[in-house]
Nucleic acid binder design. Sequence first.
DNA 1: AAGAATAGTTATGCTCCGTAACGCTCGTGA
DNA 2: TCACGAGCGTTACGGAGCATAACTATTCTT
Lengths: 282, 282
Amino acid sequence: MINDYPGVSGRRTIEPPPPEELSPRLNTTPHAPKDADQAERPTRRERARAATIEEIKQTALQLMREHGTTDLRFSDIAREMGMTAPALYRYFSDRDELLTELIVDAYDDLGTTVADAREKLPRDDLSGRFLAVSQAYREWAKREPQQFALIFGLPVPGYVAPEEGPTTEAARRAMWQLKSLFSEAAASGQLRRPLIQDVDDAVAACVMFDEDAGDPSLRPLPEDTFQACMHSWATLHGFVSLETYGHFDFVPPEARDALFTSAVRLAATAAGFPWPTDGALS
Amino acid sequence: MINDYPGVSGRRTIEPPPPEELSPRLNTTPHAPKDADQAERPTRRERARAATIEEIKQTALQLMREHGTTDLRFSDIAREMGMTAPALYRYFSDRDELLTELIVDAYDDLGTTVADAREKLPRDDLSGRFLAVSQAYREWAKREPQQFALIFGLPVPGYVAPEEGPTTEAARRAMWQLKSLFSEAAASGQLRRPLIQDVDDAVAACVMFDEDAGDPSLRPLPEDTFQACMHSWATLHGFVSLETYGHFDFVPPEARDALFTSAVRLAATAAGFPWPTDGALS
DNA sequence: AAGAATAGTTATGCTCCGTAACGCTCGTGA
DNA sequence: TCACGAGCGTTACGGAGCATAACTATTCTT
């Protein structure tokens, strides 16, 4: 009779939890079936957990889309999922952790979207790939303005990014897509010298640091090409950013499309990419 | 005994306010000294009120700077000012109204900062002015990243922009600075044809709409120049935006400076601005 | 000096974040 | 097969912020 129900001790409630360390909470994969065989298939429970996490993230995104902000309320997410808010803390220790994961996901999504677009075209179609990458970037931003804002806006109000955390790395992974476009182009030999060839020593030194090592197609870019790559990124991002945030609203949509194409063409041309003179691309 | 608890009738406190219309609250300038003489000097009270409003805004900005977000709490502002939070509602009907004013102020600040920089150089120094405007834009963003985010980020979480409200207009005013740079250049006759001269009909039509009428130096730009102006804005904004939000952190500061200058030079050159060949500007 | 408009206060309600305590339900292992 | 414990969910609660209501103090006008 001393103990007649699960949990702790007989009803006499609150006995401050003994030194047992606080919570083995998050990100633990406790209780793996046996112990050996690291690469074991995930437990049934683990799969359920992963599915729930995914559902939470999708619900969060859906709510952000609906409300048009990067704000999100645990209570809303929970209600949408038919749960109560505190339950979410089983999966994310707080709002920031969820946000961080969403940001990482956004980078990945952008990265793969752009990569897919790039790889749909033959490797030697430099201008085609340039345009495809740019358009994929733009379309993604138009399709998912909130995710775009997550990545490229100031941190959400209360949010503080984990120092040197996963977001930084995710960012580089996404950027890599653009850089590899230039790497391939440079390697192909079809690339002319860019319009601006003067490169400051500091910028040149910067190229050296930039070792994503390993990948063969990714040896250091020529200095002026690296610079041109950054220019292109700025132009591309600037256009997309202004458009996404509504600062081009005074320009009618078709004109925006044309303007975008011409901006991309300018960036590519200035970077030394060949551009077909017939109207094939614009 | 039928009713003996507060809120309804017992205690008979609350007597729902008689039809007196709700609140003559904000933005009223009630009780002007006499009535005639519209252009009267502001009342002592009016001045005090204006000063308080200004102090609130400055405090808000300061807090945003300190916390590094665009978030702001009425309670913090009030505490900082040695007041209680509800007092602020005498001056702003809610958080959004304060935010809106801050956004408008930010546009104005950016606009005048850029304008000042532009006018420091002689009218015929086209490339100098181009660089000065660009640098002013960049420096402002670096100096006031939160205000930059207010203008160019997605609306702050809970915030919904007033439809077609004051912010839209303020945005145009700031943009005007860049456009007039191109107008003057076009008028001066020193401007070469831009690098990209193909202009889609939709874009061309767009130029026509763009009548800031009145100002003589602002007659419609040549179509391709208008297009180049938009390109320049995109490049400038893209660079500044990426840098401000930390996406260039992997580039050391001096390299960033050089990269910026070269990007501006690219934009200017592509737009047809003359650029000195000696190292004067870069 | 009286009286109204203004500027502040405290008190209160609501919503949301996050934690604490508790219970239900499975899957595992004796 | 059955007990136990991990994991997942719940209700209850405390704290912070927005916003309003009701009240008080001050200040300007007449």
